[in-house]
């Protein structure tokens, strides 16, 4: 486990959160502190341990292929920050 500095700008870009320069500095320091605490985990020998994604083991929880009523479109679009007709409208999409 590393104790290197987090590239906060890169991470914030992945998370799609705009940060001010101040925030980059402040969060950088706080995340660095937290990582130091978290690095305690490197003391645990987990080489022979399986990961636990869910504590209560269950399997094959599925749904029968049946339809259910959908939401009313007006109810859905009332909440839209911007709509146009029956669509949600978003600013232009830049191809990545």
């Amino acid at each position: 486990m590393s104790s290197e500095k987090i590239d906060v700008r890169y991470v914030a870009k992945l998370a799609r959160i705009a940060l001010t320069d101040d925030e980059v500095e402040r969060f950088g320091a706080q995340l660095g502190d937290l990582l130091e605490h978290v690095n305690a985990l490197s003391k645990l020998d987990v080489s022979q341990v399986a990961a636990t994604a869910q504590v209560v083991e269950s399997r094959n929880v599925e749904r029968v292929d049946e339809t259910r009523p959908c939401l009313d479109r007006e109810t859905v679009l009332e909440e839209a920050p911007q709509r146009q007709g029956g669509f949600f409208r978003v600013p232009r999409i830049i191809a990545e």
Partner: peptide, 24 residues
């Protein structure tokens, strides 16, 4: 931010997977 970092390329095993093992 910390969660995005823990899952990001190069850190996933060291952080996220290790934490799931500690959880065990």
């Amino acid at each position: 931010l910390i969660g995005t970092y823990a899952l990001s390329s190069g850190y996933y095993d060291a952080y996220y997977v290790r934490a799931q093992k500690a959880r065990t």
